[in-house]
Protein backbone atom coordinates (compact mmCIF):
# COMPACT_ATOMS: atom_id res chain seq x y z
CA UNK A 1 0.00 0.00 0.00
CA UNK A 2 2.84 2.37 0.88
CA UNK A 3 4.33 2.01 -2.59
CA UNK A 4 0.98 3.19 -3.95
CA UNK A 5 0.39 6.10 -1.62
CA UNK A 6 3.17 8.40 -2.77
CA UNK A 7 2.47 8.19 -6.50
CA UNK A 8 -1.30 8.40 -5.85
CA UNK A 9 -1.14 11.59 -3.82
CA UNK A 10 1.58 13.33 -5.84
CA UNK A 11 0.03 12.48 -9.19
CA UNK A 12 -3.40 13.51 -7.94
CA UNK A 13 -2.14 16.91 -6.83
CA UNK A 14 -0.08 17.57 -9.98
CA UNK A 15 -2.73 16.46 -12.46
CA UNK A 16 -5.34 18.45 -10.48
CA UNK A 17 -3.21 21.55 -10.90
CA UNK A 18 -2.93 20.92 -14.64
CA UNK A 19 -6.60 20.12 -15.33
CA UNK A 20 -8.17 22.27 -12.60
CA UNK A 21 -6.07 25.44 -12.73
CA UNK A 22 -3.78 25.60 -15.77
CA UNK A 23 -6.43 24.31 -18.19
CA UNK A 24 -9.37 26.59 -17.20
CA UNK A 25 -7.06 29.62 -16.96
CA UNK A 26 -5.63 28.89 -20.40
CA UNK A 27 -9.12 28.60 -21.88
CA UNK A 28 -10.13 31.83 -20.13
CA UNK A 29 -7.19 33.86 -21.33
CA UNK A 30 -7.45 32.71 -24.95
CA UNK A 31 -11.27 33.03 -24.94
CA UNK A 32 -11.20 36.54 -23.54
CA UNK A 33 -8.60 37.60 -26.09
CA UNK A 34 -10.30 36.04 -29.12
CA UNK A 35 -14.02 36.07 -28.20
CA UNK A 36 -14.33 38.79 -25.50
CA UNK A 37 -18.04 39.42 -26.15
CA UNK A 38 -19.29 35.87 -25.90
CA UNK A 39 -16.91 34.91 -23.07
CA UNK A 40 -18.50 37.70 -21.00
CA UNK A 41 -22.07 36.59 -21.71
CA UNK A 42 -23.14 38.26 -25.00
CA UNK A 43 -24.48 41.27 -23.15
CA UNK A 44 -26.75 43.86 -24.77
CA UNK A 45 -26.11 47.46 -23.80
CA UNK A 46 -28.48 50.40 -24.30
CA UNK A 47 -27.43 53.87 -23.19
CA UNK A 48 -24.42 52.50 -21.35
CA UNK A 49 -26.51 50.15 -19.24
CA UNK A 50 -26.76 46.36 -19.67
CA UNK A 51 -30.34 45.46 -20.58
CA UNK A 52 -29.91 41.71 -21.08
CA UNK A 53 -28.07 39.05 -23.03
CA UNK A 54 -28.83 37.91 -26.57
CA UNK A 55 -28.71 34.34 -25.25
CA UNK A 56 -30.96 34.70 -22.20
CA UNK A 57 -34.68 35.27 -22.61
CA UNK A 58 -36.70 37.76 -20.56
CA UNK A 59 -40.22 37.72 -19.25
CA UNK A 60 -42.73 39.62 -21.41
CA UNK A 61 -46.39 40.01 -20.49
CA UNK A 62 -47.26 43.50 -21.79
CA UNK A 63 -49.38 43.61 -24.91
CA UNK A 64 -46.94 45.73 -26.89
CA UNK A 65 -44.23 43.09 -26.59
CA UNK A 66 -43.87 39.70 -28.23
CA UNK A 67 -44.05 37.04 -25.52
CA UNK A 68 -41.50 34.28 -25.20
CA UNK A 69 -41.79 30.68 -24.06
CA UNK A 70 -43.53 30.15 -20.71
CA UNK A 71 -40.82 29.80 -18.05
CA UNK A 72 -40.97 27.44 -15.06
CA UNK A 73 -38.22 29.14 -13.03
CA UNK A 74 -39.13 30.23 -9.53
CA UNK A 75 -40.19 32.39 -7.93
CA UNK A 76 -40.42 34.63 -11.00
CA UNK A 77 -40.30 33.50 -14.65
CA UNK A 78 -36.94 33.90 -16.45
CA UNK A 79 -35.07 34.01 -13.15
CA UNK A 80 -31.41 33.82 -14.26
CA UNK A 81 -30.21 31.92 -11.21
CA UNK A 82 -32.83 29.15 -11.02
CA UNK A 83 -32.67 27.68 -14.52
CA UNK A 84 -34.77 24.59 -15.21
CA UNK A 85 -37.97 23.19 -16.68
CA UNK A 86 -41.34 22.38 -15.17
CA UNK A 87 -40.56 18.64 -15.11
CA UNK A 88 -44.27 17.99 -15.41
CA UNK A 89 -45.04 14.62 -16.93
CA UNK A 90 -47.32 14.34 -19.98
CA UNK A 91 -50.27 13.13 -17.89
CA UNK A 92 -49.82 15.54 -15.00
CA UNK A 93 -53.12 17.45 -14.45
CA UNK A 94 -51.04 20.49 -13.44
CA UNK A 95 -49.51 20.54 -16.94
CA UNK A 96 -52.90 20.44 -18.64
CA UNK A 97 -54.22 23.16 -16.30
CA UNK A 98 -51.19 25.38 -16.93
CA UNK A 99 -51.48 25.07 -20.70
CA UNK A 100 -55.21 25.78 -20.52
CA UNK A 101 -54.57 28.96 -18.54
CA UNK A 102 -51.92 30.11 -21.03
CA UNK A 103 -54.33 29.57 -23.92
CA UNK A 104 -57.03 31.56 -22.11
CA UNK A 105 -54.59 34.42 -21.50
CA UNK A 106 -53.63 34.47 -25.19
CA UNK A 107 -57.31 34.44 -26.23
CA UNK A 108 -58.24 37.14 -23.72
CA UNK A 109 -55.78 39.70 -25.09
CA UNK A 110 -56.51 38.88 -28.74
CA UNK A 111 -60.04 37.46 -28.98
CA UNK A 112 -60.24 37.70 -32.78
CA UNK A 113 -57.18 35.52 -33.40
CA UNK A 114 -58.15 32.38 -35.36
CA UNK A 115 -54.61 31.09 -36.02
CA UNK A 116 -53.68 27.68 -34.57
CA UNK A 117 -51.78 28.04 -31.28
CA UNK A 118 -48.17 26.86 -31.75
CA UNK A 119 -47.06 24.34 -29.11
CA UNK A 120 -43.94 26.28 -28.10
CA UNK A 121 -46.00 29.33 -27.12
CA UNK A 122 -47.89 27.48 -24.37
CA UNK A 123 -45.30 24.96 -23.12
CA UNK A 124 -42.45 25.71 -20.73
CA UNK A 125 -38.90 25.54 -22.08
CA UNK A 126 -36.18 23.26 -20.68
CA UNK A 127 -33.96 26.01 -19.30
CA UNK A 128 -36.70 28.46 -18.37
CA UNK A 129 -34.45 31.00 -20.12
CA UNK A 130 -35.13 30.09 -23.76
CA UNK A 131 -34.48 33.26 -25.76
CA UNK A 132 -36.35 32.02 -28.84
CA UNK A 133 -39.81 31.21 -30.13
CA UNK A 134 -40.74 29.57 -33.41
CA UNK A 135 -41.63 31.85 -36.36
CA UNK A 136 -45.21 30.52 -36.08
CA UNK A 137 -45.39 31.62 -32.45
CA UNK A 138 -44.17 35.08 -33.46
CA UNK A 139 -46.68 35.37 -36.33
CA UNK A 140 -49.45 34.35 -33.94
CA UNK A 141 -48.79 37.54 -31.95
CA UNK A 142 -48.51 40.03 -34.82
CA UNK A 143 -52.08 41.35 -34.61
CA UNK A 144 -51.90 42.01 -30.88
CA UNK A 145 -48.50 43.70 -30.94
CA UNK A 146 -49.40 45.81 -33.99
CA UNK A 147 -52.63 47.01 -32.36
CA UNK A 148 -50.94 47.82 -29.06
CA UNK A 149 -48.24 49.81 -30.84
CA UNK A 150 -50.57 51.33 -33.44
CA UNK A 151 -48.38 50.00 -36.24
CA UNK A 152 -49.51 48.38 -39.51
CA UNK A 153 -49.42 44.57 -39.05
CA UNK A 154 -47.42 44.22 -42.28
CA UNK A 155 -44.62 46.28 -40.78
CA UNK A 156 -44.52 44.12 -37.64
CA UNK A 157 -44.65 40.93 -39.70
CA UNK A 158 -41.77 42.19 -41.85
CA UNK A 159 -39.73 42.72 -38.70
CA UNK A 160 -40.30 39.09 -37.75
CA UNK A 161 -38.92 38.00 -41.10
CA UNK A 162 -35.81 40.09 -40.50
CA UNK A 163 -35.32 38.50 -37.08
CA UNK A 164 -35.97 34.91 -38.16
CA UNK A 165 -32.84 32.76 -38.02
CA UNK A 166 -32.93 29.68 -40.23
CA UNK A 167 -31.35 26.35 -39.42
CA UNK A 168 -27.65 26.77 -38.69
CA UNK A 169 -25.72 25.78 -41.83
CA UNK A 170 -29.12 24.77 -43.22
CA UNK A 171 -29.08 21.57 -41.14
CA UNK A 172 -28.80 22.13 -37.41
CA UNK A 173 -31.61 23.13 -35.08
CA UNK A 174 -34.93 24.77 -35.91
CA UNK A 175 -35.90 28.14 -37.40
CA UNK A 176 -36.42 30.65 -34.59
CA UNK A 177 -36.93 34.26 -33.58
CA UNK A 178 -35.03 35.93 -30.73
CA UNK A 179 -37.77 37.57 -28.67
CA UNK A 180 -35.64 40.07 -26.75
CA UNK A 181 -33.90 41.33 -29.92
CA UNK A 182 -37.25 41.65 -31.70
CA UNK A 183 -38.77 43.63 -28.82
CA UNK A 184 -35.70 45.83 -28.52
CA UNK A 185 -35.93 46.66 -32.23
CA UNK A 186 -39.60 47.57 -31.83
CA UNK A 187 -38.78 49.84 -28.89
CA UNK A 188 -35.85 51.39 -30.75
CA UNK A 189 -37.97 52.09 -33.83
CA UNK A 190 -40.59 53.85 -31.76
CA UNK A 191 -37.91 55.87 -30.00
CA UNK A 192 -38.36 54.51 -26.51
Amino acid sequence: MKTLLRPAITLFVLLSAITGIVYPLTVTSIAQAVFPGTAAGSLLVRGGKPVGSTLIGQNFAEQKYFWGRPSATSPQPYNGITSGGSNQGPLNPALVAAVKERIETLKAVDPGNQLPIPADLVTASASGLDPHISPAAARYQVARVAAARKLPPEQVAALIDVHTEGRQWGLFGEPRVNVLLLNLTLDDQQGK
Partner: peptide, 13 residues
Protein backbone atom coordinates in the same frame (compact mmCIF):
# COMPACT_ATOMS: atom_id res chain seq x y z
CA UNK B 1 -52.76 23.38 -29.39
CA UNK B 2 -51.14 22.80 -32.77
CA UNK B 3 -48.87 19.79 -32.17
CA UNK B 4 -47.00 20.11 -35.47
CA UNK B 5 -43.86 21.13 -33.54
CA UNK B 6 -44.16 18.02 -31.34
CA UNK B 7 -43.96 17.68 -27.56
CA UNK B 8 -42.26 20.98 -26.74
CA UNK B 9 -42.80 20.92 -22.96
CA UNK B 10 -39.31 20.93 -21.44
CA UNK B 11 -37.56 21.52 -24.77
CA UNK B 12 -35.66 24.48 -26.21
CA UNK B 13 -36.86 26.19 -29.38
Amino acid sequence: VDMAAGNMEGKET
